[in-house]
Nucleic acid binder design. Structure first.
Lengths: 229, 229
DNA sequence: CATTGTTTCCAACAATCGATGGAAAACTAA
DNA sequence: TTAGTTTTCCATCGATTGTTGGAAACAATG
């Protein structure tokens, strides 16, 4: 109950939480430099100084936003992990992709913010260079791509990044891609899911000649405990 | 020989071209709002007003940058198309991915700018909402995923977008991902190539049970002509 | 009620942004 | 050289940015 972020997450109706929520959307749409504190304040319907009263500097608010979506994402990943637990590898992957795609389409700002963090630089790098614990390792273990934390190679890490980014791309690119395909949102979402499965599932299908760096299944259950960071 | 962009592309040593080149890099790293005209001018080593003399408004320069990388990318795609022509589908895809990955790692700002355009909004949308001809259709035909322009479905379009974005992600995300994997650049590039092939090739491998929506091969050669926009 | 602490807004600040007018410099052509 | 054109820079503008001080409004406590 110390940091402003913890307060905001505890009471979603509080002013801190309302600001944080709108900040997620604005930062997600325009990026750090594209978003202005005035845009966020106006979206909440408050004066700009109220925003500063609650969150301090712009970069502090941005940091809170990143940590916030990271926590949400981690929570959702744990839920998905629970659902797919015990299933064979192909089903685990297929269902994970579907559920995460569904979730991210409902919270597109999460994908936006993650991609911004991956790809965009910031003028004052030092202010925004806080470290967020990467979930890549947890995903790899949850999917069964590696027995435990220590056996996760860089190859597997890259594969997981590829999986995650495939989803983020179709979610964040919705506006651009949809105007290109000229289809309604529901159709686009369905098509995105279908395409993700089509592109990525075969790589992890049980019997493939090359690159057999995937575990068969049922290797977790004992490691399941230390998923809490 | 009318537009400033055409002049710049014609004479790469001209001031216009020098500004355009640095603008590519800066816009690519920081995005439209993150980049400032002063940053670009300083990078070139000129006064800011010289930049305005040659390119006018910031958004005009940005537009020129987008059109410029689009032209470069199209040129490279045509070269690749020439190389893979006549090969079987799997080889075509494999080599295309490799060559385009190689090319984009050498011109990372191209991937950056494309992703920015896909994912980021701009405060003044109207100024930057110029239309760039999409190459998705050409890629699909070149790869042999469809016989001709008219037989390209939205499913195929989405698959091509998935292919392209997979490359862009690993290229643009190099800084972020590499600091996570703690490996040198060459190793990262090799790993990226390997991962892209690992993830995406199986989906288009000849004999697969589901989703057989790919043409076999050797259906182009007559359509080859109208690739020039 | 009065008082104390918390929250919100108004007004303004310095810094930085995009952009321009005009003089100086550099170049071209005679 | 001279005249004319093109290019570059200096100085500056207004608008917008992030940020803050301080007054008002509100809430809780005695």
């Amino acid at each position: 109950m110390a940091t402003p972020l913890e307060k905001a997450r505890k009471d979603p109706d509080s002013m801190k939480a309302r600001i944080l929520h709108k900040a997620r959307l604005i930062f997600g749409q325009y990026g750090f430099h594209g978003a202005t504190t005035r845009m966020i304040a106006e979206e909440v319907g408050i004066d700009i100084s109220t925003l500063y009263y609650h969150w301090g500097e712009k970069s502090d608010l941005y940091e809170a936003v990143i940590l916030d979506i990271n926590e949400d994402l981690r929570t959702r990943l744990l839920e998905v992990e629970d659902i797919i637990h015990g299933m064979p590898i192909e089903k685990r992957l297929s269902i994970s992709l579907d559920l995460m795609t569904e979730y991210l389409f409902d919270h597109a700002e999460v994908s936006n913010l993650i991609l911004f963090r991956y790809f965009a630089k910031t003028r004052d790098e030092s202010a925004l260079d806080f470290h967020v614990p990467e979930v890549v390792t947890d995903i790899a273990r949850s999917l069964g791509l590696a027995k435990d934390r220590k056996s996760i190679t860089n190859e597997i890490r890259m594969q997981v990044l590829g999986l995650m980014n495939a989803i983020h791309n179709f979610v964040s690119g919705e506006n651009f891609f949809r105007s290109m395909l000229k289809i309604p949102r529901e159709e686009y979402i369905a098509l995105a899911k279908e395409t993700i499965q089509f592109l990525l599932l075969p790589a992890f299908a049980g019997t493939r000649p090359n690159g057999g760096r995937i575990e068969e299944r049922n290797s977790a259950k004992s490691v399941e405990k230390n998923s809490k960071a």
